[in-house]
Amino acid sequence: MTSRILALSLLFLLASATMAWAMPVAEIVERANLASYYAGDDGRSEVRMTITDAQGRERQRQFVILRLNLEEGGRQLYYVYFERPADVRRMVFMVHKYLEREDDRWLFLPDLDLVRRIAAADKRSSFVGSHFLYEDVSGRAPTEDRHELAEETAVHYVLDVTPREPETVEFSRYRVWIDKENFLPVKAEYYDRGDNHYRTVEALEIEEIDGFPTVVKSRVMDLEGGGETVMEFASVRYDIGLDQSLFTERYLRRPPREVRR
């Protein structure tokens, strides 16, 4: 009996050691994707963006973001309620995110009571005029890139990532540092077609919230044109029981209580 337990424990130890030793790249990527964009079944946070241009002029964006996962690592619903600046106040941006096809996006313009469907499908365009791109906010499907383990340090997996369809993106490759403990990507350096490092995205502060390691402050630096955007998350909560019906036209026209402060 004792010997069997010993043997099992040994086997288990061995197995876990091997796993830690050489976690497959695909699994690192998958876990990083889940940790970054799929924490909990749903989530809510209040976001403040500070956009600084090359001349040092600042602009602010403030919005409440609601997210619901329909499948782990797959379909998601996003609801973004703008509060600042005043000229975009009460506007709502809603996304139904799919992996197998283009996302559905809507914009609600409150002054005209108008629900507009957005044709813009380019996920590498700026999110609300900031240095963050749509894909930085809602995630980039891991299947769109090739990943290679460049290095493994004591605390990070360092991956080299190249796009499968280079003509659809503005980068030729990027290198990303993933925290080995919580699988959050903590830094990504983007290279253009001339292999110049032109853009850095980094997590500046991470906190554990409701059991989920969460980036509460991040920054994008534009090394080429100058300027940067800092994004801060406040009042982050997970698993609050958001209903799927919230992500429909009804709540574009009538903001739900979940966006109230």
Binding site: R117, A119, A120, A121, D122, R124, S125, S126
Partner: peptide, 12 residues
């Protein structure tokens, strides 16, 4: 019909 012609350029 509404579509994106290029980044930050849309036509309808």
């Amino acid at each position: 019909h509404d579509r994106e012609l290029a980044r930050d350029l849309t036509a309808g």
